[in-house]
Amino acid sequence: MTTPIPLPHPLLDIRELSEYLGVPVSTIYDWRSRGVGPRAYRFGKHLKFAVADVTEWIEAQRDPAPAASSQPSRR
């Protein structure tokens, strides 16, 4: 019996990614068609998403910090 080779990153299928992000699977396909979603690996007709790539993509979606106002706050 052979020992399985560990993957460098855990992989999610599209359903697992959908559940994780709380968005429909169709949204992920739409993001992919527009080139704005997380990177994926293709194994035949199956898409797999590395958790590390998803985490990186999520961080890139973060809104920038609000700019500090030049006006003093009024209380």
Rank of each mutant, 00 (worst) to 15 (best):
R42P: 00
V23S: 05
S18M: 00
H46K: 10
V54S: 09
P24V: 05
Y41V: 14
A60N: 09
P64M: 04
P8N: 05
I28L: 12
W31G: 15
H9F: 02
D63I: 08
I5N: 06
Y29F: 07
G35D: 11
R74H: 08
W31P: 13
A67T: 12
T55L: 02
P72W: 03
L21C: 06
V25K: 12
V23P: 00
D53Y: 00
E56S: 13
L11V: 06
I28G: 03
W31C: 14
Y20V: 02
R62T: 12
M1C: 07
K48A: 14
S33G: 14
Q61G: 04
L11P: 01
V23A: 09
H46D: 12
P64F: 00
V54Y: 02
W57Q: 09
P66E: 09
P4G: 07
S18G: 09
L47V: 11
P4T: 02
I14G: 07
V23D: 02
D13H: 05
P24D: 05
Y29I: 01
V36I: 15
I28Y: 03
K45I: 15
I14E: 05
A50E: 07
P64D: 08
P4Q: 09
A40C: 15
P6R: 07
H46C: 08
A67D: 12
T3P: 04
P6T: 12
D53M: 02
L21I: 09
I28N: 03
E19L: 01
T27A: 15
R34G: 08
S18I: 03
V23Y: 02
D63A: 15
A67L: 10
F49A: 02
K45D: 15
D63N: 12
P66Q: 07
S26Y: 00
P4M: 07
P38Q: 13
W31M: 15
Y29R: 11
V25C: 07
W57V: 11
E59W: 01
L21A: 10
R15A: 03
E56A: 15
P64A: 12
S26R: 14
M1F: 02
R62G: 05
R74P: 05
P38K: 08
L21P: 04
P38H: 11
K45H: 15
R39L: 14
V54G: 09
M1N: 01
A52S: 15
D30I: 01
G37E: 09
T55R: 06
Y41M: 11
R32I: 11
R15L: 03
E19I: 00
D30N: 10
H9N: 13
P72V: 10
V36P: 06
A68L: 14
I14Q: 07
T55W: 02
P8G: 06
A67G: 10
P64I: 01
A50I: 00
E16G: 07
V23I: 11
R42I: 08
G35E: 04
A50T: 04
A65R: 07
P38L: 10
A40Q: 14
Y41I: 15
V54Q: 04
V36M: 13
D63Q: 14
P66I: 05
L11T: 06
F43L: 15
A52T: 13
I5G: 01
Q71L: 06
G22M: 02
S26E: 12
Q71V: 07
H9Y: 02
V54D: 06
L11E: 03
R74F: 10
L7N: 12
A50G: 10
